[in-house]
Amino acid sequence: MGYFTSHSFFYTYNKLDKMKLGESMTLDELSVGESAIVKKIETDDNMTRRFIDIGLVEGTKVTSLYRSYLKDPTAYFIRGAVIALRKKDAKKIYIIRGNHEDVL
């Protein structure tokens, strides 16, 4: 665990049945109530810094909590806090569906 979480995680992921875990997708596609692990974040430097601030980096577990009435933004549970992200930003976060425990 610790720093190497993301690395060891990729390794195990490749070995597991992809169908069972769900395919690689972006955070905005995660349905409410489901959890996922962040695989990769592809956004500009400014937004990356914001994500780092709230502890959203590769290997972080994210749970989708609820969407706003107009379906955007969505509230996520990230490292003990509830954080709302817009769809356009969530699109840049690649995830693998499933719990930390399920994956490892």
Binding site: N46, R50, D53, I54, P73, A75, A84, L85
Partner: peptide, 11 residues
């Protein structure tokens, strides 16, 4: 101009 949206919803 830099723009970002990260809104914390505190309890």
């Amino acid at each position: 101009m830099p723009s970002s949206f990260v809104l914390e919803l505190p309890p």
